[in-house]
Design a binder for these strands. Structure first.
Lengths: 139, 139
DNA sequence: ATGACTGCAAAGACTTTGCATCTTT
DNA sequence: AAAGATGCAAAGTCTTTGCAGTCAT
């Protein structure tokens, strides 16, 4: 029944990489980041550990942005801004819906919401300057 | 420069399918739904028209749920509840962040947010009854 | 007749997974 | 030694795209 958890150098490095950045990385980003120090790291291992961490609440998913799932090492309640042009994600630590809203909505509609997520979409400062979107933004 | 838009029976049917349901369908759902009446419909056409409608603001994306992008024929401001177990999406018409929040956040952080999205995650009434999740929920 | 739209199938991108090997305990 | 973790590569899933044929204007 019980499945033991063993130490692993790469697992540790993967979690440290996520916690050490505020870029809300994708699996690929973590992989590229760690390759210099861990030349034999495999992308599959990154994916397996991301799933491992998420299942245990050590990280959370910010959702799929421009085709790639993005992760966040901060699990405290906060919101995100997501750039429609370059896909960058910014934390909005001050902006967080109250837990009472989640409870009230659950009661009102008859489901059991346990989490609530507030995302803003638009252009980040850098892309505002460059005005460099070739096509219509993605959403 | 200007690209003409022509009438197409299938395009019309695809938009009608999205507007005629509250299930927030995926491309595959639309395809399966229309196949009986349009046996020669192609999945590629569904994808192309979904992109077409979204670029023109006729539909919007609810995001990727359990690996599939989901769409919404309602573009007025409202929120969603997403079931971590079965992936169903429910509209919360009463719950919508005020436009003033988007403006205030943009000013505070220095970007240009044009849209804001509030999602709740948990178990829908059906899954609460069945308690039928085999693994840890997805997020 | 023009060019927008479509079907088909191939290709693309991201993620998951099976299996042999290596590592931790 | 047992079993968890990994590397590698294959497979899986969803989505995009090239091209030739069809259809609306």
């Amino acid at each position: 029944m019980y499945r033991a958890i063993r130490y692993s150098k790469k697992r540790e490095a993967i979690l440290a990489a996520i916690r050490g950045t505020s870029c809300h990385p994708s699996a690929e980003w973590v992989y590229q980041q760690l390759r210099p120090l861990h030349p034999d790291l495999s992308l599959g291992t990154v994916y397996r550990n991301l799933a491992f961490f998420r299942a245990r609440g050590l990280i959370q998913s910010v959702g799929v942005v421009q085709g790639q799932e993005r992760f966040d090492g901060i699990t405290a309640s906060h919101s995100h801004f997501i750039c429609n042009c370059c896909g960058s994600i910014l934390d909005l630590p001050d902006i967080h819906p109250e837990a009472s809203l989640t409870r009230a909505v659950s009661r009102q509609y008859g489901f059991a919401a346990e989490r609530c997520e507030l995302n803003f979409y638009g252009l980040c400062p850098k892309c505002m300057d460059q005005q460099n979107f070739k096509e219509e933004p993605l959403s």
